[in-house]
Amino acid sequence: MRVWAARPLVCRDAVSIMSDFVDGRLPRREANRLERHLADCPHCHEHLEQLRLTIRTLGHAEPEALTETALDDLIEVYQRWRAEESAGM
């Protein structure tokens, strides 16, 4: 076992690896260290919850809907392609 693995994390370091933790990208040993820190540190625990909420929120962000004009423009693109197809090949 390496020496650094036993050293407890400070909050700054805990925060710096949280994004990887959420993505499941931390090596097991580092994840364990973080979990031990989170169990004792309400601030970091809260920060992690906020990070999870942030990622979930990003996943729900709806883009602005397609406008009528934009759709018309695209239909024109489609018709240009159809014309191309029947003319060329």
Binding site: V10, H43, E46, E49, R52, H60, A61, P63
Partner: peptide
Amino acid sequence: TGAWSSPPEPWSERAEDRLDAERLAVRAR
């Protein structure tokens, strides 16, 4: 020392309870 000098305000629970997800999503976007 790497400890919080200005810890995060606890809002994650409040956000789930009181703010509709839609408003947060708009802000995120």
